[in-house]
Simulated scan of single mutants.
Amino acid sequence: MTKNREEPHPQEDTKNFPSLDNLRVLLVDDNEDSLFLTTFILENQGLQVTTATSVTQALETIKDLKFDILISDIAMPEIDGYSLIRKIRNSTLTEQRELPAIALTALSSDESRSMALASGFQSYVNKPVEPTILITEIRRLISNNQTTK
């Protein structure tokens, strides 16, 4: 009797994904601790991280710099992450409109996930951030974005 080999867990099967080295990330979060931790996770994987602590700052940064992916908190004061992604998706600049985006949030309900995806995010990651899940979602989005170009 032969023993069936288990399939690799999707998070462990990274050989088919592109490298993350030097990928440019815009990370938006109003919480300093969360911003620090997420930046550490991303930089540890070779990504170049630019941070913004508000939607206004993020929109100004996007005007000046090109990014490969956006990772944004949802619950922020004044203007939330839903509004940020809507503004990006409605931008006159094609590169901005098509920017792959991940919502980061402590709001872990089906409703908040649906709202994030309906607003224009392609992925949704819960806080506190699990590094393996975040990196897997980045790889998936970048891989999908490269195949659609």
Results as ranks from 00 to 15, higher is better:
residue 63 K to R: 15
residue 136 T to R: 15
residue 117 L to W: 08
residue 43 E to T: 09
residue 23 L to Q: 14
residue 137 E to I: 00
residue 73 D to L: 04
residue 50 T to E: 14
residue 96 Q to F: 11
residue 53 T to I: 10
residue 128 P to H: 04
residue 130 E to D: 14
residue 121 F to D: 00
residue 74 I to G: 05
residue 107 L to T: 01
residue 140 R to F: 09
residue 88 I to E: 07
residue 64 D to I: 13
residue 130 E to R: 15
residue 61 T to S: 12
residue 86 R to V: 01
residue 118 A to S: 15
residue 116 A to T: 06
residue 115 M to V: 03
residue 75 A to H: 10
residue 116 A to R: 00
residue 68 D to H: 02
residue 143 S to P: 06
residue 108 S to I: 07
residue 114 S to V: 11
residue 136 T to H: 15
residue 94 T to F: 12
residue 76 M to C: 07
residue 55 V to E: 07
residue 130 E to Q: 13
residue 98 E to S: 12
residue 125 V to A: 02
residue 141 L to M: 06
residue 128 P to F: 03
residue 142 I to S: 08
residue 54 S to N: 03
residue 52 A to Q: 03
residue 84 L to K: 07
residue 67 F to V: 08
residue 125 V to I: 10
residue 125 V to M: 04
residue 49 V to R: 06
residue 20 L to P: 07
residue 59 L to R: 12
residue 106 A to T: 12
residue 61 T to N: 04
residue 61 T to C: 12
residue 68 D to V: 04
residue 25 V to M: 00
residue 29 D to K: 03
residue 85 I to N: 03
residue 132 T to F: 07
residue 28 V to D: 03
residue 33 D to W: 11
residue 106 A to P: 09
residue 80 D to K: 06
residue 69 I to F: 01
residue 141 L to P: 05
residue 142 I to K: 15
residue 79 I to V: 15
residue 108 S to W: 02
residue 128 P to C: 02
residue 21 D to G: 08
residue 121 F to T: 00
residue 72 S to D: 07
residue 136 T to P: 00
residue 37 L to N: 10
residue 57 Q to I: 08
residue 128 P to T: 01
residue 98 E to G: 09
residue 24 R to L: 06
residue 48 Q to H: 09
residue 88 I to W: 04
residue 54 S to H: 07
residue 124 Y to E: 09
residue 38 T to S: 13
residue 57 Q to W: 01
residue 85 I to T: 07
residue 100 P to G: 02
residue 101 A to R: 03
residue 68 D to Y: 01
residue 133 I to L: 13
residue 111 E to M: 09
residue 137 E to W: 07
residue 100 P to F: 03
residue 21 D to L: 14
residue 77 P to H: 10
residue 144 N to Y: 11
residue 144 N to S: 14
residue 39 T to H: 07
residue 101 A to M: 09
residue 42 L to M: 10
residue 58 A to M: 00
